[in-house]
Design a binder for these strands. Structure first.
Lengths: 201, 201, 201, 201
DNA sequence: CATGAATGAGAGTTCATTCAT
DNA sequence: GATGAATGAACTCTCATTCAT
């Protein structure tokens, strides 16, 4: 009966707006989503959205930045727990990345299709952790090649290929499909390890 | 001095409109592209676009359908010239698919990002050759696995992974980059062959 | 029954929009006037206004620029017909200026109250002839003082006083009032001649 | 350490809001000024403004009424100190009126440009002392004409001309300009005396 | 084929104002 | 007194599309 418990059940408006925006961006696309439909889904007036966010772009920025950061964090955490061998690091990174993509399918799809609609300034606020993440993958792959574990042409390009492959999960994955997110991620780990020409000793 | 020769220099309006639309869809996205900017780029009035196409959706449909069909054709032609072994077929298909993607980067990017904005009816007019193409890849991969050439979990899913990986080329490839389209396609052929766990006999 | 004669009766849309805008700016003020009310008064849709003018500011600019230019022209024409003596020039200028103000009361009132709402760029497009006009008055007044016909402190300031006095006509003059525009203008000519301390030889 | 001394330093909210409103009305105009910017300038929330004033109109009314009353009072005080002769009364009134206008430039400008945005009821609450003031000027001018000191056509109209001329001071006067408020007011006294055709005996 | 003019629908955004706290 | 959150109404401006010519 107190404020805390009720707020535990119905999330605060700000979060409800973000959730609604993600849903709308996902189903309709950024441009086709309207502040009015977002607001209605969030259960408030369109005007009130502007009490919490500067404008429509800001909604997209917040959503994408949060997703990017979380995904990066997930990957780094996985790496910390994995063995030091390049193959283990590589697989751990790909699996974690894929797992996050499958589990946050909406946000990841939006990130891959709507990022382009942000202006230069806002895009920079989002792509930071994306670039860092890519750099992480490149480092691991290069270590693998240098150590003779991997054998693949154009390492950097291979990393790009793997990352877009993983991002693609967001295009088709459904939680109620035949494979669990974990199963999908695991197989993508295998694909990626194969892709870089890993040959067990 | 005949019509044909003049049309060889300045393409007919219909084609100019399609070219303009592709360019606008590519740079601005389907929703942000306006009939006016498309028309201006094509060098005619907005009203005149409607003398050649039913509506804005139709422009997207035409562009995507043509690209899909051409890509499918390119892939089938490559398969006809390739050896019968699964590895050869698989590589030929991936290379052809990738090559088309790199060489038609704009259309392929639009196909992957804007297809969702078509309604059910129009989307069906486009996805036919896409599905056929996917089916082709699946058939080859399954043959490879059945014959023991390939070793990969969840074949169908692996094909999806490969196709999204190839589609990703459209996201970053630039004709004036360090690698030629052919070089990129060749390395993607290697990636794909690795990915399915190919082991030369 | 032909197009020409009908267009002679009902002015073209562009002019109807300008007329409507002036009326709305006059009665409601620039900010309170809406594109919808302007359009409705002009007998077209709000959207169509944008086929003829870039935006709301442009409406104000066009109205004010035309009024400024016409007023300047009226003053210069009057000067050409007047005698060379400073008193004659001065009176002619003031009377012409006042006459225009009374006869174009709406435009002049809008010019004096709404000019401030234009941004720097647009304001410059309007104030050119205003400044030129002021310079004209100053030149005449200074000649009068130099020749001993006028005797007034701070000549430039006196000109400003006269011009604001004349502009004030737009605040209260009504065509159906007791005095004709010409009668009002004539008496303002007297006021202005008195004001600069004219003493007939 | 008591309330009075502290209020001497930081004025009470009500006054801070009025000051802020005047500043905003002056720089942006009544319609463009928002309750939020006014509140921010006053250092409180927009909602709090409504604890002190009924609505936005009320802010304008309060400002204009105070200014009108003060100006009227200033004029009457000046008249009491001046000699009885029409020329002395007339000059004293104009100088006092001008002086107030220069010294309260912002309020006077707002009074002359934004009064029109008040509805009938509110406008009446403001124009009372304006009308009274005009009546005062007319009385003096008519006495001057009746006594043969002044010679000017359409006395009432001449008064209007003088009052708008004085009001114009608010348009251009700046405290840091070349002339002091007193100097400006004095020369406007001369202009006005000239204007009514004063001939020293 | 081609166009300028026209429009209904709707988008993002703002704002004066209210109200629970 | 004071506030943050909320809202209905309205505004400027855009856009796909139509139509007379």
């Amino acid at each position: 009966m107190n404020t805390r418990s009720s707020s535990a059940v119905i999330p605060h408006v700000r979060q409800r707006i973000l959730d609604a925006a993600l849903e709308e961006f996902y189903t309709a696309g950024f441009h086709a989503a309207t502040m009015r439909t977002i607001a209605k889904r969030a259960g408030c007036s369109a005007a009130n959205v502007y009490n919490h966010f500067d404008n429509k772009d800001e909604l997209l920025v917040e959503i994408l930045r949060a997703a990017s950061d979380e995904q990066f964090t997930a990957t780094r955490n996985a790496l910390r727990k994995a063995g030091a061998a390049p193959a283990e690091q590589w697989t751990a990174a790909v699996v974690a990345h894929s797992l996050y993509t499958a589990r946050n399918q909406r946000a990841c799809l939006v990130a891959n299709t709507e990022l382009r609609y942000l202006d230069e300034v806002d895009r920079k606020r989002v792509v930071g952790s994306r670039d860092a993440q890519e750099h992480l993958f490149v480092t691991i792959a290069e270590a693998g090649v240098a150590g003779g574990d991997f054998d693949v042409p154009h390492v950097h390009q291979a990393v790009t290929a793997v990352l877009t492959m993983c991002a693609g999960i967001a295009l088709w994955y459904r939680p109620d499909g035949p494979l669990s997110a974990q199963a999908v991620a695991d197989s993508y780990g295998v694909y990626a390890l194969n892709l870089v020409g890993y040959r067990p000793a």
